[in-house]
Design a protein around this nucleic acid. Structure first.
Lengths: 374, 374
DNA sequence: TTGTATGCGTTATCAT
DNA sequence: ATGATAACGCATACAA
């Protein structure tokens, strides 16, 4: 690989040797398989076999071919392979954004698992826009993606239609539902927020606020809201409209939310359930600013368990999901399908509740309620 | 796109119509360009033109073709296009890891800019391993990448040789040096840490510690260390070996580092320069734990300006770089080259010093020194 | 403006 | 075990 551009090994050297017709050629000047075949004194079929079915080639010939390939600095052209074999060795994943660590690590997990099998993972970001997700999926189908993963199931029906029409195995990630029509790998967002809500109810809390990222086109967040509402309802409780904040997933939004909740002309909540740790971190910071004692006066919960969440004071009660593992499992699931295995409906990974300092007994909790604390 | 799998529009319908030879065909059962041509009653060349040179086709014919394509649910196969046009419409980027937000946002920026031009960005992670980076680059060349970006220049010479050999335009990102042999888009790591060090020296600090991520195979971090050493040296100062910590880029490492520095049997530093905000956050947290007053007793600096860094108490003095913009500029630079323009050597983006609460005058600073503070 | 014919680099089929 | 050659799906030079 250290040849200078004009060395004999340059792929641009002597392109005329391949000119065979009287018609003008569109030569790329790159080393191609037939060059290797010629140098090794074998047929093109044999060169191909050396890389795809090594066992079917004698050791002697194989060595000669490999040597020729190294000499000429040749490696197979992916487009040619894809066309001839009708296998692209490409898989795709559509995530909302790379700005969120949970999706980034999921991509890492998938990429590592696919790379081990010689499959290139192509990434697309929808920016939480269903239309963009559809465009991305179509682009990946055009690229011949052999398998696809999409985060969540809040996508246009055309997206899944296209996947089915072209018989591309796919999986919905991050979310998991037993009764999903799709294969899915992730956790149960509803169950997770039921658990979180029950934790607070067990601590005696009866007045809640929620601060969430945008629910639109986001089935995961919608499931979380639904879980909170359903759980409270089962206890005869509900969140006041003034205590529901929806906005961007930032510390700043968390801070603004707490301020507005605290200024609302109604009874203040004793607990705030946040859509993720960023928002919760903002709530904690603003509480410090406003002199609100945590958890004495107010309990706060997040989701994702960022590294910082166990380091700040008070430490944040939150839930942890292994998103890298979600990515790894998703790739494995899709590989299994490509291998002709018929794997399960999907995989459920656990969301773990990490109870820390930011949640505690409700200020006016009855002794009986407080004892429910785990 | 809403056709059921067995609708007339299914690409699997009637594959026999394309069988023309007595030889066995390896039909993929997918709708191809010639199907569209037949339905529209035109030649394959015309269909191709509709998508590649629309102006050269009459509106009437164009409409018929587009209608046929929609009816048959066809879109061009990327491998076929790549092979025939010797253009892959693929660009690649190699980053160390997606776990670091700065690289993730750089990828976002590149992807957005490339997508606007119909180019798919393929991502590879080296995990800070030069060998993996080389493998990734070769894989992308095999995929026919038309342009490449790599983070930093600490890569095997074979990597850049391969890029040059195949005449693939490339850029080194995140780092910028006037005298770099490569096109580069980023900031000057050396200059940034000179500025940071001077800031502390201006505050009267004379005894320093540094906590950095691994320097091996990382030219950006190496430049930062060199900058710190050179700047101190210019003032007749140096960092004691006991005050140099190198480790993972985590809050935990920052905490452990401060503890070991504080326990070292020598004069304690009055300032700690960290390789990034994560590490600095750890130092801040451990300082609180150890009862070290910041910045009264100890000044701390980070790098990256995470959202949390201006929210924690004390707020963190750090430097900010627009990494999304680095990605956008990189894509633009590479597109310019592909367009035949001969752009500059690269682009330098600014690293902005954000002076906050975590840095202040050195405990025993002379009045004269302290006045150097900006 | 449109059609014809051929090649892009590889793999797969068949024959040896 | 190896070779000859026809696809794979599309784009393009050239003819009309």
């Amino acid at each position: 690989m250290s040849d200078t551009p004009d060395s004999p090994a340059s792929p641009a050297s002597d392109p005329t040797v391949r000119t065979q017709t009287n018609r003008a050629r569109r030569s790329t000047g790159r080393t191609v398989l037939s060059d290797v075949a010629k140098l090794a004194g074998v047929s093109t079929a044999t060169v191909s076999r050396v890389y795809n079915e090594p066992d079917k080639v004698s050791a002697n010939v194989r060595e000669r071919v490999e040597h020729a390939a190294v000499t000429l600095n040749w490696f197979p052209n992916a487009a040619g392979r894809a066309l001839a074999s009708t296998r692209s060795h490409i898989a795709g994943i559509i995530i909302p954004t790379l700005d969120d660590q949970v999706f980034a690590s999921q991509v890492s997990g998938m990429q590592a698992a696919f790379a081990a099998r010689g499959i290139t993972l192509v990434l697309g970001c929808s920016n939480y826009d269903p239309a963009q997700a559809l465009v991305q999926v179509r682009a990946m189908l055009a690229r011949g993606a052999e398998a696809m993963a999409v985060v969540g199931e809040a996508h246009p029906p055309e997206l899944f239609d296209a996947l089915r029409l072209y018989r591309v195995p796919y999986a919905v990630t991050y979310a998991y539902r037993e009764d999903s029509p799709h294969d899915c790998i992730g956790f149960d967002n509803f169950a997770a927020y039921v658990q979180m809500t029950e934790h607070l109810i067990g601590l005696g809390h009866r007045s809640f606020a929620v601060c969430l990222q945008p629910t639109r086109d986001n089935d995961r967040v919608q499931a979380r809201v639904a879980a909170i509402r359903a759980t409270l309802e089962r206890h005869g409780l509900a969140v006041r409209p003034e205590h529901v904040c929806e906005g961007e997933s930032t510390i700043g939004f968390g801070r603004r939310s707490l301020r507005s909740i605290w200024q609302a002309p109604c009874e203040r909540p004793s607990a705030i359930i946040c859509g993720n740790d960023h928002i919760a971190l903002g709530v904690l910071r603003e509480a410090e600013e406003l002199g609100i004692e945590i958890p004495g006066e107010l309990s706060v919960t997040g989701f994702d368990d960022l590294e910082i969440s166990k380091e700040i004071r008070p430490t944040l009660t939150t839930m942890r999901v292994d998103t890298y593992e979600i990515g790894r499992l998703t790739a494995q699931h899709l590989l299994d399908i490509l291998d002709g295995k018929r794997p399960q409906h999907g995989h459920e990974v656990r969301a773990l509740l990490e109870i820390r300092e930011s949640t505690g007994p409700a200020p006016n909790a009855h002794a009986g309620d407080a004892r429910l604390q785990r």
